[in-house]
Nucleic acid binder design. Structure first.
Lengths: 164, 164
DNA sequence: TTATATGCAAAGGCTTTGCAAATGT
DNA sequence: ACATTTGCAAAGCCTTTGCATATAA
């Protein structure tokens, strides 16, 4: 079974379980969302669907994205101010976090097993049952550094403001 | 010099440097913002100021919060969907990250020097110049666990959706 | 005096919602 | 047949902005 087939099945099962319907729109949205291989927002997905000449309303896109997140087929992030970003959920695949370049807005994925473990240690120290986490490192990528972007310039563009 | 005096001075210097004015409103907003010892949003600060019978418009609160962030007197976070949270900046104090309880919404601060160092390692691996970062661990606090809140229930309430 | 700030209300950007018509089961 | 969905436009929410008036320097 290909990954897409698995995702389609997962969505079907999810909908059936809840007595919801598998509509054309929902299927088209799932397939397009899962095909994008970077982060996207609702508006972008809506445009992609239109350019595929699918006539789906923005409201339906929003409603379906929420379902896909509930079905664990998409993850959400809030890197950019003002709107939610989505990405295909990584089933079985290792969890990853993000490095975000303040110069060019590119997003890179990283995974550090040591950090993952240390988070468990922190949770234990606080008597917390860890459910999930988000971890973003903001900075300047190599390319932008070479193009002369400095940390100071970048700091001004960071949407996060926290003393390090 | 008390902490508040330092903050007042920092704000004054910041404004002077930029040729901006130290108005009554700005001073009142600074003093109230810095006095709250948890995270707050613009609306909450606005209400606090009103209850102090200060007549300050919401627009001025937003405008001044932006200045306070620029002056490094406040940090911003985006734990909650839909609005920005502010907190007094930790000058000199160690940087901290957050544990957020999905049961009761309380926010706890943690600091892990090991994680801080590992982030540098990650940044280096990607040829990144790290500017800052955010790191939130979502879970169920001890108190909520004892009151029967399970990870599953909590997952449904998480505003972050990322496979671990 | 004069550039900057304030307050108000209106506008913005993203997302959600109410409702009649359409559709999956 | 019937409950669920869709599309549309309107409304919601947080935040920003334009403009006339007020105020700090």
């Amino acid at each position: 079974m290909t990954r897409l087939e698995e995702e389609r099945k997962r969505f079907q099962d999810f909908l059936r379980e809840r007595g919801l319907k598998l509509t054309q729109q929902r299927l088209q949205i799932l397939e397009r969302a899962v095909e994008v291989d970077e982060h996207f927002n609702a508006e972008e997905l809506f445009e992609l669907l239109r350019s595929d000449s699918h006539r789906i309303s923005k409201a339906t896109v929003y409603r379906t994205l929420a379902l896909l997140v509930e079905a664990d087929l998409l993850d959400t992030h809030d890197f950019e101010r003002g709107h939610t970003l989505y990405e295909r959920a990584a089933h079985g695949t290792a969890h990853h976090d993000h490095l975000i370049c303040l110069g060019c807005d590119r997003v890179f994925e990283f995974h550090s097993e040591e950090i993952e473990l240390l988070q468990e240690v922190v949770a234990k120290r606080f008597d917390f049952l860890m459910v999930n986490h988000t971890h973003q490192i903001y900075g300047v990528c190599g390319r932008c550094q070479r193009q002369g972007v400095t940390a100071e310039q970048a700091t001004g563009r960071s949407r996060v403001r926290s003393s390090l």
